[in-house]
């Protein structure tokens, strides 16, 4: 039933501009420009505004100026974390929507958010003195939940629908745990709010290096697995006939999607919106071929998270709002526009 909805959704698309291949590369170029713009804007905006020539100068040489330390120690690493988080979540969502043949699939359905959320909350609320453990705990929680869902959905093979149902059940179960902790320890909830909504506040170089290996892995997968995912999307029977090892491909890609999302949420907390809507928006603009969809989603994800975080950081300065809230407020209307147009 999900598969049918997926097919219907894409068959009702009118052939038009977006079906021309020149248009696809132009759109990818626009996305890349958006990344550059977001990067420059993120470095420029803040309590101290730093002009573009200065940004470039201080990135490439350490002249000991205050601008250098604002850019190098604060804005630049935070922007890189934002970009990598955007890449990982968007790619994870793009992979899962293909693997599950379901337009509503996102990292949430393989339990990554709920697993990371519960593990993070346990540390933040029960052991606040071990706050530094949050990323590692969130990563373990995310992967633990993903593996649990995979095991629960396993029955002589994996059916996307069973994963989705098992995912909903496990997420509800873990969500209940999160709610219970927040009610029982309501006096300590404040420290968990940023984590629960996703925040890039005070992220720096160590976070860059925590998440970077996964982004690199994701990019490699995006290049080499795109054709396999295209074939998998044709349906299990057809994919098998064409010589694809359906089970191994589905399991491998699901594992990669879980790692990508887990690495992102372990660093910035629960950022729900990117993994669902960025790949979807990219598909509406670029079509379903994963060779184009993957790079498109990565670029758009990076640009949107960087822009949203810059907005979150500067709009109500000195108060920072969680970036997840910004993305929901700015992104959802745009997404609805794409859907309705």
């Amino acid at each position: 039933m999900h598969t049918e909805a997926y097919i219907r959704h894409f068959t009702t698309q009118k052939p038009g501009l977006k079906n021309r291949s020149g248009w696809k590369y132009f759109t990818l170029f626009i996305f890349a420009m958006l990344v550059v713009l977001a990067f420059l804007l993120g470095n420029y905006l803040g309590t101290v505004k730093i002009g573009i020539p200065d940004i470039i100068r201080v990135i490439f040489n350490d002249d000991g100026s205050p601008e250098r330390s604002i850019i190098w120690d604060i804005r630049l690493p935070r922007l890189i974390v934002a970009a990598l988080v955007g890449i990982n979540l968007a790619l994870s969502g793009a992979i899962l929507q293909g693997v599950m043949s379901n337009p509503l699939a996102d990292p949430t359905i393989i339990g990554v958010s709920a697993g990371a959320g519960l593990a993070g909350i346990i540390i933040l609320i029960l052991f606040p003195q071990h706050q530094l453990m949050v990323p590692m705990a969130a990563f373990v929680g995310a992967m633990g939940a993903a593996v649990l869902i995979y095991i629960l959905a396993w029955k002589g093979g994996i059916q996307p629908l069973r994963i989705i149902l098992a995912g909903v059940a496990v997420a509800a179960f873990l969500g209940a745990g999160i709610s219970a902790l927040m009610v029982l320890f309501s006096d300590r909830v404040h420290g968990a709010i940023l984590f629960m909504n996703g925040s890039l506040s005070a992220r720096s170089w160590p976070d860059v290096f925590t998440i970077l290996p996964y982004s690199v892995l994701g990019a490699v997968i995006a290049v080499f697995m795109a054709e396999r995912l295209n074939i998998l999307v044709l349906g299990d029977d057809t994919a098998r006939s064409l010589g694809l090892n359906v089970e191994a491909t589905r399991m491998g890609l699901t594992a990669v999607a879980a790692l990508l999302a887990a690495s992102a949420v372990s660093v910035v907390g629960l950022l729900g919106f990117v993994g669902l809507i960025i790949p979807h928006a990219t598909r509406l603009l670029l079509g379903t071929n994963h060779r184009v969809l993957f790079p498109g989603a990565m670029l758009l994800g990076a640009a949107v998270v960087m822009l949203s975080d810059t907005f979150a950081r500067t709009a109500f300065s000195p108060t920072e709002i969680p970036v997840g809230i910004v993305m929901a407020i700015l992104g959802v209307p745009f997404f609805l526009y794409l859907l309705r147009r």
Binding site: D237, S241, G287, T288
Partner: peptide, 12 residues
């Protein structure tokens, strides 16, 4: 093998 049902990628 030509199966009965085919999905997806209809913009291919």
């Amino acid at each position: 093998v030509l199966s009965q049902l085919h999905n997806g990628m209809t913009d291919a």
